[in-house]
Design a protein around this nucleic acid. Structure first.
Lengths: 246, 246
DNA sequence: AATAACCTTTCATTGTATGAAACTAAACTC
DNA sequence: GAGTTTAGTTTCATACAATGAAAGGTTATT
C-alpha cells in the first residue's frame, strides 16, 4: 500500500505546515516526484480532505465531519465524558483525557473544573509524551528502546532541545511502583498536574487522565491527594470500555 | 490512484456507519475483497486515522489534530470569525458559515447571538443542500443537471423522500434575481433562517452565511431586513479571502 | 464437539502507480 | 517587454505494487 502511505504522508505534512503548501514544497518535503504528489492531491481533493486555491494546497473541510464522527461515536470519548464530569465535580479541577498517537499524545476530551484552565478547548492538540504528567505516565512502563524512539521523535518535532537524552527523560518519569505522574511548570508555567494511566487489558496503556490546576488554586499535596480518586475514575473508564460493544 | 480512492471510501464508510464496523462489513459495503480492505485498514491504522479493538474498526484519533489544523489555519474559517462576530453583534442572532462538500454542506463556523440556538456547537455537521436557507442558496445558480444530481444524492442519503423530484426542489429555491434564500420550519421546526452566498471570483459559490433564529425571537420580515447586512458581510469575507496569502 | 463464519496469509497475475522527459505556464530578471 | 528561470502539468514506457483466489488459521455458533 505504498501509494496510500504516501498520501497519508502528504496529508500529515499539510497539517504540520500549518499554512498552504505548494506542490513542489510537498513533493520535496515528502520525498516524492511531482507527478505522484499531484495525483495524490487530486484524489484527496475529490474527497474534500484537501482544498486548493490557485497553486496552494491545504487541509480540506472533510476532516470536520470525520472529527465529529470520532467525538460522537468513539467508545473511549463517549464513555469518558460522565467519568470526567464526576471527577471535575468532586475535585473542582479541570480533567483531561489524552490518547497516545505515535510519539505524541492528543487531547480528546476535557471537562473544566471550578476555575477553568483556558478559555478555549484545545481538543485535538498534539502534545509531547516527554513533558507533562499525562505524557510521562504513558511512558512509565516503556522499554529502553521505546524511550529512545520517543526521545528522538521529541527532538525531531522540536519539542525538546537537540541535547535531550534518554537519561534526562527517565529522570522525569515516575519511579517504579508509583502509578501516577506529577508535573509542575513543565509544559506550561504556573500549571500543576497529576495523571494516571487508563488500564488496558493487554499491552501498555495508551490513554491517560490528568487533573490540572493553576498554581494559585492548588498545591502539590492537594493534587496528589486526588490521585486515588483519579485512579478509581481510570478504572471505571476501563471497565466501561470492556463492556462497550466496540 | 485506485487504492487511494478505495481507502478514502473505507474511511468515509466508517464515518457513515457511526459505529464500529467489522472487516467483512466494510469489504461488502465498499465492494472490495477482504484482503484489500484489510490492507487498507492496516495502513490507516498506522497513521491513527482508524482504530481497532478486537475485530472492530472505527475512526481514529488522528482526525482530531487534522480538524484542529483546519479550523485554525484555513483562510475561510479564520477570515470568517470576525465577520460573523460582527453580524451576530449587530443582529443579535446566530450566524453560521457553511461550505459545500460534495452534495452536502458542512457547518464550519458559528457565532451565537443573544439567544443561542443550541447548547452544543455542531461544527462539522453534514446537512443537505436541499433543505434550509444556507443549503438552497448554494443551489441558486445550479444547472438542471446539477439539481438532478443533488436530488438523487439527497434521496440516497435518506435526507429526502424517495418521491422527491427536481421540480419540488426548484420550487423551494429562490426565484431568479433574488440573492438570498429563506426557510421556515424546513430543516428544524420552529426555526427561521435567511442565507446569502459568499461570492466567488469564478464559478458558483460554495460557501454561504446564514442567520438563524427560533420563531419566538424573530419574524420573517425582521430576518429579511437583515439581508443587506448579511450581504455586506459576505462581500467583506470574499474580499478577505482574495487578500489572504492562500 | 462439530460446524460455520470470519479473519489472515500466501502467491501468481494484472494493472496501476511511478518518474523521466517533454511540454506548458507562470514568475522573475534585466 | 523580451529573455530566462522556475513551477506545474501531461505523456508514456516500465516495473512493481495492488489485487483477489485459494488455502490456512482462528474464533464464534450451534
Amino acid at each position: 500500500m505504498r501509494s496510500l502511505s504516501r498520501a497519508l504522508e502528504v496529508f500529515a505534512e499539510l497539517q504540520r505546515a500549518e499554512r498552504p503548501q505548494r506542490l513542489s514544497d510537498l513533493a520535496r518535503t515528502c520525498g516524492m516526484s511531482l507527478p505522484t504528489t499531484l495525483r495524490i492531491l487530486r484524489v484527496l481533493q475529490d474527497f474534500g480532505m484537501v482544498s486548493q486555491t490557485d497553486k496552494s494546497y491545504r487541509i480540506g473541510p472533510a476532516v470536520l465531519p470525520a472529527a465529529r464522527s470520532y467525538l460522537e461515536n468513539d467508545p473511549l470519548v463517549v464513555s469518558a465524558r460522565p467519568v470526567l464530569q464526576q471527577v471535575a465535580a468532586q475535585t473542582g479541577l479541570t480533567v483531561s483525557l489524552y490518547t497516545r498517537l505515535g510519539f505524541e499524545r492528543i487531547l480528546v476530551a476535557r471537562v473544566d473544573g471550578a476555575s477553568p484552565l483556558t478559555y478555549d478547548l484545545p481538543l485535538g492538540k498534539r502534545l509531547p509524551l516527554t513533558v507533562g504528567a499525562a505524557g510521562k505516565i504513558l511512558l512509565a512502563s516503556a522499554t529502553d528502546e521505546e524511550l529512545q524512539q520517543v526521545t528522538a521523535a521529541a527532538i525531531a518535532a522540536g519539542q525538546e532541545a537537540p541535547t535531550f537524552t534518554v537519561e534526562q527523560l527517565r529522570a522525569r518519569l515516575p519511579e517504579p511502583g508509583i502509578e501516577y505522574a506529577y508535573s509542575a511548570d513543565e509544559r506550561a508555567t504556573g500549571v500543576l498536574s497529576v495523571a494516571v494511566a487508563v488500564p488496558n487489558r493487554a499491552g501498555r496503556p495508551s490513554e491517560s487522565i490528568a487533573l490540572t490546576s493553576p498554581v494559585e488554586t492548588a498545591t502539590e499535596p492537594a493534587l496528589k491527594a486526588a490521585v486515588p480518586e483519579l485512579r478509581r475514575a481510570a478504572g471505571r473508564l476501563a471497565e466501561l470500555l470492556q463492556g462497550s460493544v466496540y
